[in-house]
């Protein structure tokens, strides 16, 4: 879907001060990034799961599970690539997200919403808002139904506010202020793990009358 709208995205990025070459590179990178994360969807669980040795008669294992609802304030500069790089790992991990698009460069974000809407992604998995960051951040961080907040700028006052408010309602805070999205370091399964909780299960196994454990 993204590919079909490539021309439109390139055009919009150019309206947002990118050159044609930069814009084309960014759109291609976005598509590749989506392919990258979709590949991880059914694989990261195996990497980060484990069967744990325990002393009692239990089968003990740990698996990553989605955090839940993630509120993200998308990067202001990399309007499309930043947005995709933030959204993709969140939904690849089975979370849902509410994203505040770049307020100075919102054009691509809204078009991207149209792409998502026609990509058989269930409604409500990705929600995209436009508006001013400083005004909306407190509501993102305060909201009791939101389980994690992502902030991508280095504005220390806002970072502090998010941390304080999130401490009150025990919300995860993820700061991506030093990430260069266009680099190879801008994609990694660890971005998926930022929005996963490790859940450990103690499964009792047969141990009758002092007999040794068996399945």
């Amino acid at each position: 879907m993204l590919e079909g709208r490539k021309a439109q995205f390139v055009d919009e990025l150019m309206k947002q001060d990118s050159t044609k070459a930069q814009a084309e590179k960014e759109v291609n990178l976005c598509i590749e990034r989506f392919i990258y994360y979709s590949g991880w969807c059914d694989k990261f669980q195996q990497l980060y799961s484990s069967v744990n040795p325990v002393a009692s008669s239990h089968f003990n294992f740990s698996v990553p599970e989605p955090t839940g609802v993630v509120a993200a304030i998308a990067p202001q500069q990399d309007a499309l690539l930043g947005l995709v790089s933030v959204i993709a790992p969140i939904i690849a991990g089975g979370n849902t997200c509410i994203v505040l698009a770049s307020s100075t460069k919102p054009l691509c974000a809204v078009t991207f919403a149209e792409v998502l809407n026609s990509s058989d992604l269930p409604g409500g998995v990705v929600n995209i808002l436009t508006g001013k960051v400083a005004e909306l951040v407190p509501y993102f961080a305060d909201h009791m139904d939101v389980n994690a907040t992502v902030f991508c700028e280095s504005d220390s006052a806002i970072q502090k506010m998010i941390k304080e408010k999130s401490a009150l309602n025990v919300k995860r805070v993820v700061l991506y202020d030093k990430i260069k999205w266009a680099d190879a370091t801008g994609q990694s399964p660890y971005f998926i793990m930022d929005f996963q909780e490790i859940k450990t299960t103690w499964h009792p196994i047969e141990n009758i009358g002092g007999a040794k454990a068996g399945y």
Binding site: M1, F34, S38, G68, T96, S119
Partner: peptide, 21 residues
């Protein structure tokens, strides 16, 4: 979000999307 089955559904959609791309 807590259900893996739904997570799978998102993944399938995402996969489909990227395969088309």
């Amino acid at each position: 979000a807590g259900l893996h089955s739904t997570a799978d559904k998102f993944c399938t959609a995402l996969l489909k999307c990227s395969k088309a791309a």
